[in-house]
């Protein structure tokens, strides 16, 4: 693979995607699966193309991305601030660990009924689920990151009279940043899943709600088209966060030497 390089890889990958499309075209056309349940790939993509020119789809997509971005941002900053405080103040980590370990595994979908009661089918519900799910992903990584600060460097900074704020700014933050970015990457994926879930289950406006509507009205090709779109957006979200990670950590040895973290 090294000789043929990335071009060869690309060729194989395209062949794989092409194969999937051919398979999804052939299976319903040959009658192996009822086309009512699995429309041919051309029909799915055609439906998607048709939907992409309607403003409704873009509005729904915008709603989903708004819930995703707002929720992620809220969770991220809350987790970073709390994580740094818990990590730095002596004794606080021991005090909070049992609570964190208890709250973290609670599946955020457990909050669906509560969100429904408090907010109904609106952005608030989406935000509640997204924030809860992504908060822990970031917090745990921030805690790891702050714990990774070299204690000698910390003591040195203190004896040189750096204020608490500059210690955080110039020592703790750069050390924790790779961990923080990992947390952000994990949280971004989870946040997208939960944003769509909230729309699907509670009915907050967005892609998930569109899928639910399409399903209950029996518009099968539209269901598939929207799922394909959700997958594409998911890929976009992952790629964007990876790009951001590389940008932010461009100075870091792990990124500079191209060693995969």
């Amino acid at each position: 693979m090294t000789r043929t390089g990335s071009l060869g890889r690309l060729g194989y990958g395209l062949a794989g995607l092409g194969g999937l499309l051919v398979l999804m075209e052939a299976v319903p056309r040959l009658g192996l699966v009822d086309a009512r349940f699995l429309p041919p790939a051309s029909e799915i993509l055609g439906t998607l193309a048709g939907q992409l020119v309607t403003p409704e789809l873009w509005i729904a997509l915008g709603e989903t991305m708004r819930g995703w971005a707002l929720g992620l941002a809220l969770a991220f900053w809350a987790a970073v601030v709390l994580g740094v405080v818990i990590g730095i103040v002596p004794g606080l980590r021991g005090l909070t660990s049992s609570t964190v370990e208890f709250l973290r595994p609670i599946p955020s979908v457990a909050l669906v009924p509560l969100a429904t009661l408090l907010f109904g089918p609106s952005l608030g519900s989406t935000l509640m689920l997204v924030v809860y799910a992504s908060f822990w992903q970031v917090l745990i990584q921030v805690l790891y990151g702050v714990a990774a600060v070299d204690s000698v460097a910390f003591d040195t900074a203190r004896s040189y009279g750096l204020s608490a704020w500059s210690r955080v700014r110039h020592l703790v933050w750069p050390t924790a940043l790779p961990y923080v970015m990992t947390g952000l990457r994990l949280a971004a994926a989870v946040a997208f899943i939960l944003a769509v879930t909230a729309e699907l289950v509670i009915g907050s406006p967005g892609l998930g709600a569109e899928i639910q509507v399409a399903q209950s009205s029996g518009a099968v090709p539209a269901v598939y088209a929207l799922i394909v779109l959700a997958g594409l957006v998911g890929i976009g979200v992952n790629a964007a966060v990876r790009l951001l990670e590389r940008r932010v950590l461009a100075w870091h040895p792990a990124v500079r030497s191209e060693v995969a973290a």
């Binding site: 879930t197 269901v223 799922i227 890929i235």
Partner: peptide
Amino acid sequence: EFFRAIPPPVLVPL
């Protein structure tokens, strides 16, 4: 990678 990027809950209606 594409299949993984699909948020799993959207598969429920399907």
